[in-house]
Design a protein around this nucleic acid. Structure first.
Length: 444
DNA sequence: TCTGGGGTCCTAGGACCC
DNA sequence: TCTGGGGTCCTAGGACCC
């Protein structure tokens, strides 16, 4: 904790939804929900108009629709968010060399490095007001909430106190009187599980927490977490603003609208994800030794399986081969709702190819199950009529993330089976009336 | 059809080494 | 010829954050 309120936390208000409202005037003043729109989507950001109806981040889109059916539900335009974020981070870096972005819409700024005449409350307040105005001007109207305090913790708490479009400076020395009446969940790292553990011990507020011994806290929530809580309950926080943070892992995952049961399809999806991870690794000049797959079963139990190579790789073929091998050891007969691939143990160098000839022989030896993109496909959307070479007529139940799910309901089989395919499965075609006689009947 | 996707950090047990 | 001990690496699971 510093003698002056010199840590600033900036948080763009309802960021994704605000960018949408900025870019589409017809959405201004109306409820907007950005997030997954599929059957298993969740809300990433709700505009303040949508929050009035109880729509919240991380809520399922299904529930958001039932609470606010007239909202605009949007999937999100990440390039637009990235562009806006780049502008804001640029403004912050122009104000101080010490900026730590936490996400696209949040950052800490160290005001000790900003070259202000002093760090007294009126000075940092004026600085922050000007920064907020600059953000609004340069982003064509996005608003930011700002908190300033003697530590990251206090700055972050402060930025939450007057949302949206607010500014709160917590004067040095007043931290504990601010925190004591607050619920323990204001402390970063205290989520639902910790709240419940503390509640059972009769601890609800920061004041309650402050009265608990270090030994007791460690017993309740573990070593690292316990000592962290002990300090934060006293507003003790010496964490510095870190402008450069190393990437520790790169991953790609997907949740599918219907549970997957087809192993060949799962392997195809893992292969695609492995390629995507490999592309992102090499784009960043990274490679890694540990390949992990993540499998969420139908009942939401989540399994991770990993394997570690002797030297780092950024090869999509290698990552895919290992990922498929890891999947082979799992029982997925009950259905899989999520599949993912990640690489960790990263190095910012690629292993020198000391034995180039062996490595080069290996890759063509294990050919990928190639996914062929066909050009005559306009894409799949729910409700489309389709024909599968073996299954016959059906219609699209869900499509996205490389998977199309088809219900084979026909006049003959009104409760027909549901199957999922890769969206470029050569056996799956759009149905057109002129194909009526060409569509093979269902096999069973 | 409750429960995304991209991450970070921590814990705990076993293997292995000196 | 019971059961040391510290350190590191690996694997699996889980809490949490935005």
């Amino acid at each position: 904790m510093r003698a002056h309120a010199s840590v600033l936390h900036l948080d763009l208000d309802a960021f994704f939804a605000a960018v949408e409202q900025r870019d589409k005037p017809s959405l201004r003043g109306k409820p907007v929900v950005v997030g997954g729109v599929g059957g298993r989507g969740v809300v990433a950001t709700a505009s303040y108009e949508a929050r009035k109806y109880g729509v919240r981040s991380a809520m399922s889109t299904r529930e958001a629709r039932s609470r606010c059916p007239h909202a605009a539900f949007l999937t999100g335009r990440f390039h637009a968010y990235r562009d806006a974020s780049t502008i804001v981070m640029g403004l912050l870096r122009a104000a101080s060399p010490l900026v730590e972005p936490l996400s696209l819409d949040e950052a800490f700024v160290d005001l000790e490095a900003a070259g202000l005449p002093d760090l007294e409350v009126p000075t940092v307040t004026a600085f922050a007001q000007e920064l907020r105005e600059r953000v609004r001007d340069q982003t064509e109207g996005l608003t930011a909430s700002v908190g300033i305090g003697t530590s990251k913790f206090i700055a972050k708490v402060a930025s939450d106190l007057d949302k949206p479009d607010g500014l709160v400076v917590v004067a040095p020395g007043t931290e504990q009187e601010l925190l004591r009446p607050m619920h323990v969940s204001v402390i970063p790292g205290v989520g639902p599980v910790t709240v419940e553990r503390l509640r059972r011990a009769g601890i609800h507020t920061v004041a309650d927490l402050e009265a608990v011994s270090l030994e007791e806290l460690v017993r309740l929530v573990g070593n690292a977490h316990g000592s962290g809580l002990f300090a934060l309950a006293r507003a003790e926080d010496d964490r510095t603003v870190e402008p450069e943070r190393e990437t520790k892992s790169v991953s790609s995952e997907g949740t599918y609208d219907t549970d997957l049961t087809d192993r060949a399809l799962m392997e195809q999806l893992l292969t695609r994800q492995a390629r995507e991870v490999a592309a992102r690794l090499s784009k960043q000049g990274l490679s890694g030794r540990t390949v992990t797959i993540k499998v969420r079963l139908h009942d939401f139990t989540t399994l991770n399986r990993s394997t570690t190579l002797p030297s780092p790789t950024d090869s999509g073929a290698t990552i895919a081969r290992l990922a498929r091998g890891l999947l082979a050891d799992l029982d997925t007969s009950g259905g899989v709702r999520l599949l993912g691939v990640g690489v960790s143990g990263l190095a910012d160098w690629i292993q020198e190819d000391l034995f180039g000839e062996t490595e080069q022989e290996e890759e063509p030896e294990a050919p990928e199950p190639e996914i062929v993109r066909s050009r005559d496909r306009p894409g799949w959307a729910p409700g489309m009529d389709v024909v599968h070479d073996e299954m016959g007529r059906g219609w699209v139940w869900g499509a996205g993330r490389g998977v199309v799910t088809v219900r084979f309901e026909t006049a003959q089989t009104p409760a027909g089976p549901v199957r999922s395919y890769a969206d470029d499965d050569p056996h799956l075609h759009h149905w057109r009336p002129e194909q009526a006689e060409a569509g093979a009947p269902p096999e069973e």
